[in-house]
Design a protein around this nucleic acid. Structure first.
Length: 253
DNA sequence: AAGAATAGCAACCGCACGAGT
DNA sequence: TACTCGTGCGGTTGCTATTCT
């Protein structure tokens, strides 16, 4: 299937968004919604492609975006979820209300991956060389209703304390051992592997707990879960892994 | 103080999927 | 059934800020 590039029309602007463009986009979406991203820039009078508008909205302009540094709780959650899901950033983001897949992806590549790498080494704790950077330039255009403090009340991780595996920030990481408990073997860069006993146990469990044990989309982030079956399916597996982890942990007590 | 090196992050690109026709 | 369209996702790039020398 050969498709034309999304920005096939000449004259469409690229690069960083200006405050004016941000305001135009936000105003248009607040008034008309975003039922059709491709038509939206034209309707809003923006010289951007729909894809760019969508990205800007999802990653930056959405009112429920939580900005600011990631808390250690969030970072631990990302580490755990990444250990289970791999690079399924959107699924991970669905578990972290107010955080976007792009943001999580960036945090993973810039902070967490290095943290894991350094913690896996016997010595040489890599202390952060740089202090936190100030917010991005374009963020200044959005000061006010859209910018939230880093930890706004009412927003919390979707991972319950029970689901959350050890979140010791001293080591910062205990997922590998936890996954071993679930029957998964995890190495830093490879997909973890699952043995048959794990599947038989977890699948049996999921049947037992169907209808009650499984979370549904409305417990996740506000708009992060689309009705698509793909997402629901992924959420199903996330829940499954977490429940399996809990079960295994409990059984060892 | 200036230039180089590095880190952080916003944005782009291409592919895949589902829905509609 | 085959095709198109719109959307979402993950990988990657490139600019800017910050730190180091």
């Amino acid at each position: 299937m050969v498709r034309a590039p999304c920005c096939e029309k000449m004259g469409l602007k690229r690069g960083p968004w200006t405050a004016e463009e941000d305001m135009t986009l936000v105003a248009h979406i607040e008034q008309h919604g975003h039922s059709n991203w491709r038509a939206l820039p034209k309707q809003a009078g923006l010289l951007r492609c729909g894809k760019s508008c969508r990205l800007r909205w999802i990653n930056y302009l959405r009112p429920d975006i939580k900005r600011g540094n990631f808390t250690s709780e969030e970072e631990d959650a990302i580490i755990q979820l990444h250990a289970m899901l791999g690079n399924r950033w959107s699924t991970i983001a669905a578990r972290l209300p107010g955080r976007t897949d792009n943001e999580i992806k960036n945090v993973w590549h810039t902070h967490l991956k290095k943290r894991l790498e350094s913690s896996s080494k016997p010595s040489g704790q890599a202390a952060p060389k740089r202090k936190a950077k100030k917010p991005a330039v374009a963020a200044s255009a959005l000061e006010g209703p859209t910018s939230e403090p880093a930890s706004s009340p009412g927003q919390s991780l979707s991972i319950s304390p029970e689901q959350s595996l050890s979140t010791s920030s001293a080591t910062g990481y205990s997922m590998a051992s936890s996954l071993e408990n679930t029957g998964c073997s995890y190495s830093e860069s490879e997909e973890f592997q699952i043995d048959d006993s794990f599947w038989s146990e977890t699948l049996a469990m999921s049947v037992d707990s169907s209808g009650s044990g499984m979370e549904t989309g409305d417990t996740f982030g506000a708009d992060s879960v689309s009705p698509s079956s793909r997402n629901n399916e992924m959420d199903f597996w996330v829940t499954l892994f977490m429940q399996a982890g809990d079960m295994q942990s409990l059984s060892q007590i």
